[in-house]
Amino acid sequence: MSLIDITRTGPIWQLQMARPPVNALNPALCLALADAVEQAVAEGAGGIVLAGGTKVFSAGLDVPYLLSLGDDQEALLQAWSAFFRAARALAASPVPVVAAMAGHAPAGGCVLALCCDYRIMANGPFRIGLNETQVGLVAPEGIQALLVRVVGPHRAERLLVAGAMPEADEALRIGLVDELTDIDEVNARAHAWLQALLDLPSMPMRETRAIARRDVVAALAPERIDLERFVAQWRHPDTQAALRAMLARIGK
């Protein structure tokens, strides 16, 4: 069974993560997403809609899987590398990408959305944010830069240090998402937003976009992620205790 459902509507490719129940980002899903983005570009897509599940866009990294790797540093590096391959594929896409979020987008789900050009979220009690500190993690400098880019440095600091996850209306107010709509209209609005861009003269739109998004690509450069340090921190007792407490709360 495919982990990414692909739907083509004219020049727009919709890539829908399909790993129920919450699109937890294990290596297989991350690599499938990166491959799907690259396939869409190679086959001439004009724009991409990144969609997830209803009520949960993506719950972020698959923590039970990561914990199952124990002290296997090489396996942990490979798992996190797969995630950053997906994030970089979205960030570096030469065609515009819109995140269609019909539900919650914590942690890694938020990172994927921040790598997109535009973020549409379902109106309602849905949350988005980088809650890493609440689960014992330190968001790498490059990931923090993605948040700073959209909400500004002081607000990003407050959100990051607290691991805050604002609800949809607050996320819109502070610029973390660009648009709210009814949950049943999220994908349609994403297609409409993309189509409006595709109606512009192609070369000027794409070249202007590439210049404007250089900082997104730069934020995910290896030296700004420092993956080996991040994985080393994964084994810190504070991190392990917080992650296991989180799993206990949600019944995993």
Rank of each mutant, 00 (worst) to 15 (best):
A242W: 02
I211F: 14
F84M: 04
G103M: 04
A107W: 06
P20Q: 11
E157P: 00
L77V: 08
A192K: 09
E170H: 11
F230M: 12
G53S: 07
M203Y: 14
A102C: 13
R158F: 10
V56E: 00
Q134R: 15
A248N: 07
V161P: 02
I4W: 00
V97N: 00
H104Q: 11
A188E: 14
A190R: 05
P204A: 12
Q240T: 12
D215A: 15
R173A: 15
G103S: 08
D169W: 07
R158A: 15
A99T: 07
L77T: 09
R119K: 13
D215T: 15
E38P: 09
L247N: 03
V231L: 07
R119S: 04
G52W: 02
F83L: 10
R149Y: 10
E179S: 08
A86E: 06
I128D: 06
F126C: 12
D184A: 14
V151G: 07
A139V: 03
M121G: 13
A107F: 13
G152M: 05
F126M: 12
L176P: 03
G44H: 04
G52I: 05
W193D: 07
A241W: 02
F84R: 02
G70F: 08
H154P: 08
V41I: 09
P96H: 03
E141I: 13
A82P: 06
N23C: 03
I211A: 15
A145M: 14
L3V: 05
R85Y: 03
V135S: 05
L227I: 09
P94W: 04
Q134H: 11
M101S: 08
E43K: 11
A212M: 14
V148L: 06
G103N: 07
R85S: 06
D238G: 14
L112I: 10
N26L: 00
A99C: 09
P106C: 12
A92Q: 08
I250R: 09
I120M: 08
A32P: 01
V177N: 04
G52F: 09
A87N: 07
L69P: 02
A113E: 08
A82Y: 03
A192W: 07
P237N: 14
T181H: 07
L76W: 01
P96C: 07
R158S: 12
V231R: 04
M121N: 12
K252P: 10
R209L: 11
I120F: 01
N131M: 10
E132W: 13
L77G: 03
L112K: 01
E228R: 15
S93N: 01
V63H: 05
A45H: 04
M246F: 09
P201L: 13
A221F: 00
F84K: 04
T239Y: 05
A91T: 03
A91I: 03
G44M: 01
G108Y: 01
G152Q: 10
R229Q: 13
Y118L: 14
L25F: 02
R155C: 11
G108A: 13
A162T: 10
L29W: 03
P153K: 12
V95L: 00
T9R: 13
K252N: 15
A164H: 10
P222H: 04
D226A: 15
V22T: 10
R8P: 09
Q240E: 13
R149D: 14
P96D: 06
R127H: 11
D35F: 00
G152N: 09
R244Y: 05
P204L: 10
L76H: 03
